[in-house]
Amino acid sequence: MSTSTLTKKEQSRTKSNWIAYLLISAPFFLMVLLIVYPASLSIIRTLRPEVNGTRRFGLENYLAFFSDHTSVTNLVFTLWSTGAIIALLFIICLPIALYLRFTESRIAHFVQGLALFPLFVPGIILAYALIRFIGPNGLLETFIEVTTGWQGYHTPYLKPSGSIIGLVWEGIPITVLVLTAGLAQVPDNLIEAARDVGAGRLQIFFQIILPLIGRSMLIAFALNFLGVIGAFTLPYLLGPAAPQMMGPFMQRTFYNVLNPDAAETQAVITFLLSSFVGFLYVRSAVRQQKEEA
């Protein structure tokens, strides 16, 4: 490489600097105005609780949250549900993604179409459909009764499993997409080589594939976590009255308990959990960049 091209590149780098900032300014400004600024106000308000009629800095709101039995129960329940949902998503979507990656069958097109279908169904319609399908005396129950005569069906509607089923349903497309992309990066020859030395399917999966798709699993985890933890519609319409997930709990605290400070604290706590998972995601992304560089 000659020196002249180097200087040329350096020139274009400094020149592109302000253009780059210009190009990203519109979306960034929009986000700051409509997300970052309101969120910061919200966080500051929760840190300035009203004590004896005056607002001052303090952690009272957070202490109140963590000393309230219902709040803690709901938080634990939300985390538990989120964990269950993500675990189920992996159990359902990993086989699908593996199948899509390694098959050449025509059925794959249909499987993929089905897996993407939930993208087109908003939560409100899903809730509506699930109530009629898995709900009491719904299509599933009548179908089981008519075909098998078995009367023991217990509906998950209005139980923790109700909202879990709904949120798993919604999470399938993005999980399948991310895992399929991760699997696409597993080189064929690596698997063929393993097969040649006599490795079984399970062995290949656990010892070769799984370590290679760790990052995409982390991404699927993070995206689902962000989507599920603050979910409102499905837990509200399909889940139990108690314990509640944070989404419906926040709204109830705000509109019915008439305690905006507590509701805002709940929102910030939900945000902190999301940020922690977001941090894991970001750390992985930074590492990847370093590896590439």
């Binding site: 719904g138 217990h154 509607y157 319409l237 139990p240």
Partner: peptide, 22 residues
């Protein structure tokens, strides 16, 4: 109560449990 006390979320959902024969 119904299904070990599964409380529905509103007037209409309650009424629909009756309509469904649940």
């Amino acid at each position: 109560l119904y299904d070990n006390a599964s409380y529905p979320a509103g007037n209409t959902p309650t009424l629909q449990l009756l309509a469904q024969g649940a």
